[in-house]
């Protein structure tokens, strides 16, 4: 997925992904955020996550390492520990083709629910969504209902576990940990 380089607005390490999402929303940024684990040794192998915004409201999400898009990409973007986040401004025309890709689109409030666990921010984001996205926003679950919905998606959770297991095995080798015999 190629996006033209935007103008860098901010770059920082955050422990809470609510921070860049709130910044994008409050400044009504049209552009994208580039997110990567803040302390990993496997940056190149694992790729980066990208979330685009229109007037501060998330539109699409994808992950370059796993080639996932939409809601699946949010699972890959969510990392344990700090993240390095860079927020870029980019004109809407440059993002148009990307935003027309249905499999990459995410409901407006979902990044705040999934990445930040911040129902208040999710609600603010939905309220800021344009009329054309209201329907998607209204269908979203929020707060603990969103958590329940997440827990009911066994396949998604199994996927998160499998990836973490594979990552733990790969890293064990790098870190010199002796894995137990299975």
């Amino acid at each position: 997925m190629n996006v033209p380089q935007g103008d860098l607005l901010r770059k920082r390490v955050v422990t809470d992904l609510a921070t860049p999402l709130a910044q994008a929303l409050d400044a009504a940024v049209t552009g994208y955020a580039r997110l990567e684990p803040g302390d990993t040794l496997l940056l190149d192998a694992e790729g980066v996550g990208v979330i685009t915004f229109e007037e501060g409201v998330p539109v699409v999400a994808y992950h370059t390492g796993t080639d996932s898009g939409g809601t699946d990409a949010l699972d890959d973007i969510a990392v344990a520990g700090p993240s390095r986040v860079a927020l870029y401004e980019l004109d809407g025309d440059s993002l148009a083709a990307l935003h027309d890709t249905p499999e990459l689109r995410v409901p407006p409030g979902l990044p705040a629910e999934r990445l930040a666990g911040d129902p208040a921010l999710a609600e603010r984001t939905r309220e800021a969504a344009p009329e054309s996205r209201r329907r998607a926003a209204e269908q979203e679950q929020t707060g603990l209902a969103a958590v329940e919905q997440f827990l009911e998606d066994g396949d998604r959770i199994e996927n998160i576990r499998e990836r973490a297991h594979d990552q733990a095995e790969t890293r064990a080798e790098e870190w010199g940990f002796d894995l137990p015999e299975t």
Binding site: E113, R114, H165
Partner: peptide, 19 residues
């Protein structure tokens, strides 16, 4: 009881059991 916390907890568990 938030999605990122649960998601990270699952990852911590996988690391633990793998090791």
């Amino acid at each position: 009881p938030t999605i990122p916390s649960l998601s990270d907890g699952l990852k911590v568990q996988e690391y633990a059991t793998t090791y």
